[in-house]
Simulated scan of single mutants.
Amino acid sequence: MPAILAKKLGMTQLFLEDGRVERVTVLEAGPCPVTGIRTFDRDGYEAVQLAFGATKEKHLTKPELGHLKKAGASAHRHLVEFRDEAGELQVGETVTVEAFEVGDKVKVAGTSKGKGFQGTIKRHGFASGPKSHGSHNVRAPGSIGASAWPARVMKGIRGPGQMGNERVTQKGLEIVQIDAGQNLLLVRGSVPGPKNGVVEVRTDA
Rank of each mutant, 00 (worst) to 15 (best):
H67E: 06
L89E: 00
L68W: 14
K56T: 11
E85R: 13
A75F: 12
G87N: 13
G53K: 08
A71H: 06
H76S: 10
E81K: 05
T55F: 10
L65S: 10
G66F: 08
Q90R: 03
Q90T: 12
R83I: 15
E85K: 04
G92H: 00
G92E: 04
E88W: 07
E85I: 02
L60A: 01
T61Y: 07
Q90W: 00
L50R: 00
F52C: 07
L79D: 09
L68D: 09
P63Y: 10
F82H: 07
V80N: 13
R77S: 03
L65Y: 07
G66E: 14
G53T: 05
A71N: 13
A54L: 07
D84H: 04
T61S: 04
G66M: 08
A71W: 05
F82E: 12
A51E: 10
R77V: 08
L65I: 06
A51Y: 09
A54S: 15
K62T: 04
K56N: 05
D84C: 05
F82N: 09
L68S: 15
K58E: 01
G92A: 00
G66R: 09
K69A: 09
E81L: 03
L68N: 00
L89R: 11
K56A: 03
E57L: 04
Q90M: 15
K58G: 05
G72H: 11
H76W: 14
L89G: 00
L79G: 06
F82G: 10
G87P: 08
Q90V: 03
E85V: 04
G53M: 06
S74L: 03
F52S: 11
A75G: 12
A51S: 10
K70Y: 08
G87Q: 06
H59F: 01
G92T: 00
F82M: 01
K70G: 08
A86Y: 04
L89F: 13
K70V: 01
